[in-house]
């Protein structure tokens, strides 16, 4: 605990957020059902802009489900039903006027297991800009790709082999490639579903560092299994348990002074 508290403190010092930040996304009374089974119960959560919000909790608590509601990835599961209100910049994203393709372009996602497409590194990153028509010509496309790879901290490692398949990279590199792929579309929000769970500690450290940098340009919501990780990278933390949002607030406070007994039990390792 000591070591992680240390990192947590240093992190906070460098990233203090002033004023009341703009609320980028907001969920109100979100209920999710998988067929008969209810997975989320009345979740209310605000995601402030340019901050990292961490969702933590034991497995099966609904944190991933909530994350996937934020860019409607649950739509592709037939039996899944979402009730309640989720807004992006005050627009209800489940409103019929909202286009899911556009939404997902604005709210990008990085998955648990790195899932590069079976194409070259270049094509992986260029995929989003291509389908959305973001680049007017080849030079622009190259610019976007290079820029995104740079932002994802991968460019130096792969600049000589952009034409090689993305699946040939190491796990950590693959995940950063997926992050580059997500930011190439220049989304406003990036959702990350346990992005480091398949990575070794060194790769994890790199990705965490990256997340902290990305915060300047993007709003980030991250689901994580590791409390240390939440403490290291996030400014706000929400604790889920059995489909309910138990407690949320500034990361520091959640970890040092939780109000709910369940949160306390979880972060001190009594269950999870």
């Amino acid at each position: 605990m000591d070591a992680s508290a240390q990192t947590m403190n240093t992190n906070r010092e460098s990233t203090v957020v002033t004023n009341a930040p703009h609320i980028k996304m907001k969920g109100e009374k979100v209920n999710v059902f998988y067929g008969e089974k209810q997975a989320l119960f009345d979740v209310d959560l605000e995601v402030p802009e340019h901050q990292v919000t961490a969702l933590i909790g034991p497995s099966g608590c609904g944190k991933s489900t909530f994350l996937r509601c934020l860019n409607r990835m649950n739509d592709i599961i037939d039996i899944c039903q979402v009730k309640g209100n989720i807004t992006l910049d005050k627009t209800d994203i489940y409103d019929s006027s909202v286009d899911v393709v556009e939404l997902r372009a604005r709210v990008g996602m990085v998955f648990q297991k790195p899932n590069p497409f079976p194409k070259s590194i270049f094509e992986n990153v260029a995929y989003g800009p291509k389908i959305h028509g973001l680049a007017r010509n080849k030079t622009e496309l190259e610019e976007i790709v290079v820029e995104s790879l740079q932002k994802a901290g991968l460019f130096e490692e792969v600049k000589d082999r952009l034409e090689e398949p993305g699946t040939g990279l190491s796990g950590g590199q693959q995940q950063r490639l997926c992050i580059a792929r997500a930011i190439a579309v220049s989304p406003e929000v990036i959702l990350m579903d346990e992005p480091c769970s398949a990575l070794d500690p060194i790769a994890t450290a790199k990705v965490e560092e990256l997340i902290d940098e990305l915060r300047q340009n993007f709003t980030i919501v991250i689901v994580t299994h590791s409390m240390q990780q939440a403490a290291r990278v996030s400014q706000r933390t929400a604790f889920f348990h059995l489909g309910m949002l138990v407690e949320e607030g500034v990361t520091d406070e959640i970890f040092t002074n939780p109000t709910d007994k369940r949160t306390q039990d979880y972060i001190t390792g009594r269950f999870g």
Binding site: V101, E102, G133, L134, S186
Partner: peptide
């Protein structure tokens, strides 16, 4: 100078 996502969407969606 580059298209933003919103512009791109409008024209191509």
């Amino acid at each position: 100078g580059r298209k933003t996502i919103g512009e791109a969407m409008k024209s191509s969606l």
